[in-house]
Amino acid sequence: MKQNKLSYKIRQYILFAGPGTALFLAVVIVPFIYGLYLTLTSWDGVSKTKEFVGLENLAAAFKDADYWHAMLRTVIYSVFAVVFINIVSFALAYLVTQGIKGQNFFRAGFFVPNLIGGIVLGYIWKFVFNRAFVAIFSSTSLLSTTNGAMFCLILVSVWQYAGYMMLIYVAGFMSVSKDVQEASKIDGCTPSQSMRHVIIPLMRSSFVQCIFLSITRCFVVYDVNLSLTKGGPAGTSVMAAMHVYNQAFTYKNYGLGQSEAVILFAVCAIVGVTQVLIGKRGEVEA
């Protein structure tokens, strides 16, 4: 049997999976491992030698007050953004699955912000906040105050992701079979009762997925942060990802920046895994 020989298998593997594996290792795995090594060095990005400093960067990262402020801000931003993204997208998904005239048109419309990159979206909203809203409410721009800038970031993120999450909830609504809904009606449920006790529990996997996706996206927000507020006013809306970027590329503290990035990764991983585990536990089947 030549099919089971190891050399044959290896040749097949290289032929088919060689390029994919090579690129994956070169772009993801090698930099990841090398990045762990970089956290142990003090490197300025230019010099040839990378001085080995052990755990100094990690200690410095834990002492970097700006970093932890940015992290706290990211957590606050993410909590608000995730809650509102999911409320808005669930409501939209409900409305566009009721058989209303033109519902496909509405679905397509709500999705439009997702087609466009965060940089462009941020600049558009900057114009809206700085010019249009100022003209409508004849007040100073929201972007020039600390809380206002955070509010703007949350609003834009909700607007940006609601249409995408809506599509996932729409798929969830479609997967709840009509029979079950009919049955709950015959058993005497009011529409709101059947929503609470029948439809939402059956859509649990959609919720798990949307919350997971929105958390992971909000946690590493960068594009909109850069174009909408640029961290301002006075650095009070710098999110963790932007802080990491500035630490490494603007201030040339590559080792420290990388350590802070690794901490960000650890936080992301813990939050993501916990959320998926909690979500999986209570899944119901029809």
Partner: peptide, 24 residues
Amino acid sequence: IIFSLMIASMVIPFQVLMVPLVSV
């Protein structure tokens, strides 16, 4: 092993890879 490595790598945010990537 390769497949599990790929699945696991999906949780890595780009921010962790950008510095080493530019450096390598």
